[in-house]
């Protein structure tokens, strides 16, 4: 009997060593080690051997079973590793091959730039405010200190729907709406949006463009705050070492009126073609809100002062990306739009 057991053990062990994969191993387990398997069955034989041999035989059966189980486990670990190795070998890839195309959405570059610019001002406490694109003449011009036939109207060619209804030429029309809504309370708003000019569409001019304007009204507002806010803006947008240059200009709705330049981002102020060799780039127009405009907005210019600024978003995009034709912006060629990848 013991001899037969020894024979079984060596046969089973050979079978186990011959299993080639985890599936073979599983069937081996079922045949030999499972509750009704051959190794287990030997336990039933224990009762059949003579009493005096029973103890020794029983011990032998147990040894065989536990040794087979141990051998099974060793084999299983080995085959598992082998299996992983095979999987890995099968999954070897030429990583220089193209990947699987994805479908990714994207924002229009003007959206990105409007968000970036108005985001900088929002972090300085300027709240976004929007108003209508189709406007009354008085909100776009008159209340901004440009009565009919005022010379400053020459600066802005306008699309008219009727004698007194037009497409706004700047987001400044929203200043009036905001002032009238909040006066006499202090105001700190940013006005992003599309504006329109009656022009021919050329590489350098468009009939629509985005503006982001800022307006700050309060009892202690100063011209120096305008410089501080705009310096902060220039540094957030163009780098911590940016400088601004403020020079005189004219807008009917501000007094004083200034243009604000930044150091040319291409040549860092050395002078290049883009900055016309001045080292400076025009960034935006700004000034202190004209008392007449404050009055139209419902404020008392004796009690509050205001600062305002406005910049053209598309000009900024062209500058930043070195694009020389503004028509790309609203042509929406996907080969253009996809380059902004955000």
């Amino acid at each position: 009997m013991l001899e037969k057991l020894q024979q079984y053990y060596s046969t089973a062990k050979t079978l186990l060593q011959n299993t080639a994969n985890l599936a073979d191993l599983e069937s081996f387990y079922r045949e030999h080690l499972a509750p009704s398997g051959k190794a287990t069955n030997w336990k039933r034989e224990i009762g059949k051997v003579p009493v005096e041999e029973r103890r020794a035989f029983g011990q032998a059966v147990n040894e065989v079973t536990s040794e087979l189980l141990a051998a099974f486990e060793t084999r299983r670990d080995l085959l598992k590793l082998k299996d992983i190795a095979e999987t890995i070998a099968a999954q070897a890839t030429d990583v220089t091959l193209p990947g699987r195309p994805l479908r990714v959405g994207g924002f229009h570059p003007s959206t990105l730039a409007v968000r970036e610019v108005s985001g900088v001002f929002q972090r300085m406490g300027f709240m976004p405010f929007e108003s209508a694109h189709v406007e009354l003449d008085r909100n776009n011009f008159e209340y901004l200190n440009m009565p009919p036939d005022h010379p400053a109207r020459d600066m802005q060619d306008t699309f008219y729907f009727s004698e007194d209804i037009l497409l706004r030429t700047h987001t400044s029309s929203g200043q009036i709406h905001a002032m009238r809504r909040f006066a006499p309370e202090p105001l700190r708003i940013v006005l992003p949006g599309l504006c329109y000019r009656h022009e021919n569409i050329t590489p350098r001019s468009e009939i629509q463009f985005h503006q982001v304007e800022g307006l700050l009204i309060g009892p202690n507002v100063r011209m120096s705050d305008l410089k501080g806010v705009l310096l902060q803006f220039a540094r957030q947008m163009f780098g911590p070492n940016q400088q601004i240059r403020v020079r005189g200009s004219y807008f009917p709705f501000t007094e004083p009126s200034v243009e604000v330049d930044i150091r040319c981002t291409l040549c860092s102020g050395e002078g290049c073609r883009v900055c016309k060799h001045t080292g400076w780039l025009e960034l935006l127009g700004a000034g202190m809100v004209h008392p007449a405009v404050l009055r139209f907005g419902g404020y008392d210019p004796e009690k509050v002062r205001g600062i305002a600024f406005g910049l053209g978003i598309e000009r900024l995009i062209l500058l930043r990306h070195g694009i020389d034709d503004i028509r790309y912006i609203f042509q929406n060629d996907l080969r253009f739009l996809r380059q902004f990848g955000e």
């Binding site: 309060g218 202690n220 705050d225 310096l231």
Partner: peptide
């Protein structure tokens, strides 16, 4: 260059 001193509305 200064920053506005009025509180944020």
């Amino acid at each position: 260059e200064t920053m506005p001193t009025d509180p944020i509305p």
